[in-house]
Design a protein around this nucleic acid. Structure first.
Lengths: 338, 338
DNA sequence: TTTACTTAGTTTACCGATAAACTAATTATA
DNA sequence: TATAATTAGTTTATCGGTAAACTAAGTAAA
């Protein structure tokens, strides 16, 4: 592997002159030497060793993208939400001249070690972190970090991007109410402490009360939010375990599972049950009937996250964090009036 | 950020002694100093700077995962095949003690630069590369590389992992034939020079000829293989543009699009048309009816790729490349006898 | 008793880059 | 003409580690 030293030797100049050419400091080098050196660089396909550069510059141009591996032996990239978001972020990070190191994590200490190991310039957390882990990260003061869909205490100075979960819950429920539904289930991972879910729930409750409908505990379905969990709920719904005419599920996968679970029991969506999901994955239109859902714009989310992070890295303190991205209702085929 | 030097100062020893403790070279250090140093390391959450280490050791513990960004402005991680494969590889790479740098690439020179920049120990290419790019990579001799689904000239000494595409084409077609179909379309990106497709096509042709059925050019549908392309084909099929009773599509997305395109025209799968896909994505069972498809095992593919790569990196020359992974028919609901 | 071998370290040099200070030659200014 | 400023570089020190050679004290063997 060719080094700057060797380029310098071949050009008959010192290392620094080559370094200056590489870094565009042309005022220090005569134009004929610039051309000479650039030719030699080109000819040899020279690429600077960024390990060495990072060492002196105390900045690595590395951004770590971290995803929680919630469940052991479970490939988190199966989740299209994570994958798409990851892809968007990778593209934007690269366009900004940074490199992406990815790691799925089950232990916050691994993250700390990773960031220290590579002297990362910044980090993006795709999934919410626990309060304790957040505090640990804060104390260490390793590098700027952006958190997606994390809710913090008001005094926190973390960077974060989230969506308007309250609105999501509200407009989904309102849409069902406007279509004549009065018994509406809210299916989600209710045990989670995250405010993502409680905001959506609050939106649901407020929409109900706006229509003068009392919230009933029996309409709150506590479940994991994967497709498989939906299958079970769908079967239960077809067996009239819940006295509802519609379900608002807080993930598309859950909603899709519910639909499939229903159809396996001869229960027809939307005739027998209306369903609304959350996220607007590609699957929504691939499924039949096509899933009505609350859409979030992952490109916007990614863009905001990276922008926030890079302005923190480069100290351009225009950080109006948290950024709250809008959501909207995508009306398709799984809600029927009654 | 705390350094080895500082740890050494606090412990009252030289840098090397600390370095030896970190690297488990305990025979050079007394046990009480080992304990002392380990405590100081722990207390300070010290993590070695891997940029510095890479510099002296001439190995970075970095493996680059490369994905072609075929289309500009198109997030490749939307593709569940890519995402899952990526996730599997990331997990295995990490378990092997390596770090993952990802990059979506549209130009092979960017890859070369990336690998040089970070002095990568190895690279995995998730998508096929052109003949010229392969040769360019070979000439440069940068680091060991594994290619997924690439077909090479016999003399090539690249490492590669692929699947039995021929068998996939053969068993899919045979399944349709055994169900009484005689007019079977083969829908794929036929213009592609890659042997992935031609192997599947050969399997298709051989199955036909085994049943004494002449191959007809009118049964070969040339198309891109995304969902949207399937929609068009599906509409054409419902309009009887092709005289067939079944389609073998070389991607699940294409198959799913075809199904949707049909259903939008009131054409019913599998009653009016049988469909077989390829890959066995999660979507196959989420869709209704559930898609019969040729399944490949992405975990196995990932495992083989990383194993091959790491044994090349560590010079354990047990490289029996190419590895060919098996495929199997997953019978579900989109093929009907006639 | 002399020499050889362990043990438990230390010292020095270096990986491949950059920052900062320095220099020699030329040109501009007082 | 003497001095200052500019141009086009070079030199030295350093980033945070590791390899390899070295050393001093204590122990074992001849």
């Amino acid at each position: 592997m060719i080094t700057l030293q060797q380029i310098a030797a071949e050009a008959g100049v010192s290392k620094m002159t080559v370094s200056n050419v590489i870094n565009g400091k042309f005022d220090k080098v005569s134009s004929q030497k610039i051309e000479l050196i650039q030719n030699i660089i080109e000819k040899n396909h020279y690429a600077p060793n960024l390990n060495a550069r990072s060492l002196v510059k105390h900045q690595s141009k590395i951004i770590a993208i971290l995803v929680n591996a919630f469940v052991l032996d479970y490939n988190v990239f199966i989740d299209p939400y994570i994958s798409r978001l990851f892809g968007e972020i990778e593209t934007i990070v690269r366009a900004a001249g940074y490199y992406t190191i990815v790691q799925t994590v089950d232990n916050i200490n691994d993250v700390i070690t990773l960031l220290r190991n590579w002297n990362a310039d910044g980090a993006v957390f795709l999934t919410p972190q626990s309060e304790e882990d957040l505090e640990l990260l804060l104390r260490q003061h390793i590098c700027p970090m952006v958190f997606l869909d994390n809710y913090f205490k008001a005094d926190s100075d973390f960077l974060s991007v989230k969506i308007d979960d309250y609105k999501g819950g509200y407009i989904a429920t309102k849409h069902l109410l406007q279509n004549g539904h009065r018994k509406i289930a809210f299916a989600s991972y209710l045990r989670e402490k995250s405010d993502v879910i409680s905001a959506r729930l609050q939106g649901y409750l407020d929409a109900l009360s706006e229509f003068g409908i009392p919230a009933e505990d029996s309409c709150l379905i506590d479940t994991f939010t994967r497709y498989e969990d939906g299958l079970v709920i769908g079967r239960d719904l077809s067996n009239r375990k819940y006295d509802v005419t519609a379900v608002f599920a807080t993930s598309d996968h859950l909603a899709l599972g519910i639909m499939k679970g229903c159809s396996l029991n001869g229960f027809i969506v939307p005739n027998d049950l209306s369903v609304i999901g959350f996220d607007d994955l590609d699957l929504c239109t691939i499924a039949t009937p096509e899933l009505t859902t609350i859409a979030q714009d992952l490109h916007e989310k990614a863009q905001s996250a990276v922008q926030l992070l890079i302005s923190a890295i480069t100290d351009t303190q225009q950080t109006s964090s948290p950024v709250v991205c809008d959501v909207e209702l995508k009306i398709r085929q799984t809600v029927q009036s009654r």
